[in-house]
Design a protein around this nucleic acid. Structure first.
Lengths: 117, 117
DNA sequence: CAGTTACAAAACCATATAGTTATTTATATG
DNA sequence: CATATAAATAACTATATGGTTTTGTAACTG
């Protein structure tokens, strides 16, 4: 996917509260099944499956296989890219962010290292 | 606006390449008029105005008045909030981000200070 | 092999999005 | 006051989104 299209898909995926909640849950609890994900939401199973498809298309999650279950797994890379986009422009947003430069360099170094996994 | 609804609107606004380009331009060049913004895009003036309305609803830009012109001004706050959401969960994305905690605290302190403008 | 579990796919609906062209409004200027 | 400029609004179109219910399918279980 084109860089820009990937960002489109990532931000689009993040624009829904149900999907953000799904990502948060995956971040905290690790892999979860669709039924488990659907449980806290006032929403049908197919609705959750649709959200998962959106997340999967954006590369934010991948799916495993465990008998009938299709465990959902968080994929961090697109989140890192989206964060990168936002951070890239922070220095312009306000003079107050000027002194962030050092921190940002560190962040980027760590990100680059993490990207090699 | 509710916190969640604000994030919805921000990420939604960021999910379009034209709008991201507008934000980038505002970040680099400061306030710009609608005509100036529209110029590099293969898109009509009303289309740009619509995008600006989306950005304005999300609180990402505000509009001034200079004779017939309505200069567009970048508002950083929602971008900071979106960045905050992403960064908040980074520590979970990978064990490698564990040592970021100190940096993140600093970032958040600066953000909090900036929020008081 | 009949039933159950976990999920996906299909078909449908209402609303939102992203664009268009044409028109209107507000301000400035000759 | 007539015209030009800058931008908003209106009306329309096509497609996408987010939800529903119903149906289908793959894998386990008794």
């Amino acid at each position: 996917m084109q860089d820009s299209a990937r960002l489109d898909a990532t931000f689009q995926a993040l624009s829904d509260p149900t999907r953000r909640a799904i990502l948060q849950r995956l971040a905290r609890e690790g892999d979860v099944t669709v039924m488990d994900l659907a449980e806290p939401f006032a929403m049908s199973q197919p609705a959750i499956s649709k959200h998962l498809k959106v997340l999967e298309k954006a590369g934010l999650v991948s799916r495993g296989r465990d008998a009938q279950k299709r465990p959902v797994h968080l994929e961090a890379q697109p989140l890192a890219e989206a964060t990168g986009w936002l951070i890239e422009y922070r220095k312009y947003w306000s003079a107050q962010f000027g002194r962030l430069d050092g921190l940002l360099e560190e962040l980027q170094a760590i990100e680059a290292a993490a990207g090699k996994n």
